[in-house]
Design a protein around this nucleic acid. Structure first.
Lengths: 227, 227
DNA sequence: TTTTTTTTATGATAAATATCATATATTCTA
DNA sequence: TAGAATATATGATATTTATCATAAAAAAAA
């Protein structure tokens, strides 16, 4: 199994603040596994006994609504740590993580995370900053969902998907390919409304569609919509 | 000016983890002031040079939307610290704080907060947990705003206002009295829609209204609506 | 491949919510 | 206190968005 000291992915998260000694200890205790597309990493309400480090692939983090629908709260890609909040607060997870494509994931036990959080100041600062960034995004999302139209939120989401996953250099289409249903759940609208608005954007020449592939043609106009 | 060592309010925030020495230092450096109803503590985009400790009164934390409207992201009451995220992330504030009634506020400089964050593990853990709780609330709010109707969100908000500010023991009306406009901005709807739905709830015997005073009569039904 | 299932697409319609208009009540201010 | 300004209330209407229905396209399974 690969060693954390040699894993480049750690440079993208708070783990970069760990010392060589700490990384070696984590290497001994961590486990590594594959999650297939559609499989669940953890469920809302689960007691997490550690954090998940996404090595490759990406997943959606959702919250189950009383009407049985999932709301996608955010997406996570390689380099991100999942479950930090639950570990720090010693609470069950408030979100469900589901793979949107095959993923490689490492699991780092709670004990090590909490030990280093108290012993390594640089690490705890980075962990807290990471959580702060999530909070800032959530505040922004809340404001957007409160006063923006569905079309505006769709524009925001398309730009966010590009930022998060980038585009295929050949086809220029978004690397993150969501079903219309998932996209609708991120935007916070009905699937049909989402499809309809995508069609509108296509008719207006702002995006191109072919199957799940989406190309952002007129990004200036998208940004204008997103404001 | 009152000394932090003797201030009971600190027991309600992460400040309770500070040592006597640390509290004494803060007492020397902190400033204390009054913010009148409607006045602004800080603006979105402001560079905060410390955190604000709410000693009495409460305020709204808002985000300016591109359409010029404010979205109320949350309310803060006595005992809460404002501006922690900005200090930790060394970023400008992402929210505007406006007093909803006269407030007493202490300002604790950035330097002390950051020093104790690195030196006092108990303190940094509590600060991080506080931020984690805000994140959890924001995730919940995002899910609610995504799939719930305006009436359901109004019910949620009324219950939240009771939880946050309590009720007058005499009249049983909510202590936190918001304008219909502010309430609408928290729920995420038009002022008129908010007024209409309050009237509906009144007709259904779920709440009582007289001016800004709101009495939650049938809390079971409200909770049922809030789900 | 053929069949079945799922996803995407689009029209028709219903429901929810926003906007505009206006009246009344309340609060503020001179 | 009177008058002005603001907040609350409610009707009429417009707009947005969701739901239902159905068809075409794509993907999965036999």
């Amino acid at each position: 199994m690969s060693r954390c000291e040699q894993c480049i992915i750690r440079e993208f998260s708070s783990l970069k603040a760990l010392t060589r000694d700490e990384l070696e200890t984590i290497s001994e205790t961590k486990t590594h596994f594959i999650v297939r597309k559609g499989e669940i990493l953890f469920l809302e309400g689960d007691n997490l006994n550690g954090v998940y480090c996404v090595k490759s692939g990406f997943c959606k983090l959702t919250k189950l609504n009383s009407n049985g629908k999932d709301t996608i709260i955010k997406l996570a890609k390689s380099g991100e740590l999942l479950g930090q909040r639950s570990i720090i607060n010693e609470e069950t997870s408030n979100l469900t993580a589901t793979a949107l494509e095959d993923m490689q994931v490492c699991f780092i036990p709670k004990k090590e995370m909490l030990d280093y959080f108290s012993d390594n100041n640089k690490f705890s600062l980075l962990v807290t900053r990471d959580i702060c960034n999530h909070l800032k995004d959530a505040d922004k999302g809340l404001a957007d969902h409160t006063h923006k139209t569905v079309k505006e939120r769709l524009a925001i989401m398309l730009l966010k998907l590009e930022e998060l996953g980038g585009v295929d250099p050949e086809t220029k289409s978004l690397n993150i390919q969501l079903s219309r249903e998932d996209l609708a759940n991120m935007v916070g609208t009905a699937t049909e409304s989402c499809i309809r608005l995508l069609s509108d954007l296509k008719k207006e020449g702002i995006i191109q569609l072919s199957g799940k592939k989406i190309i952002l043609v007129d990004k200036a106009e998208l940004k204008n919509l997103a404001q």
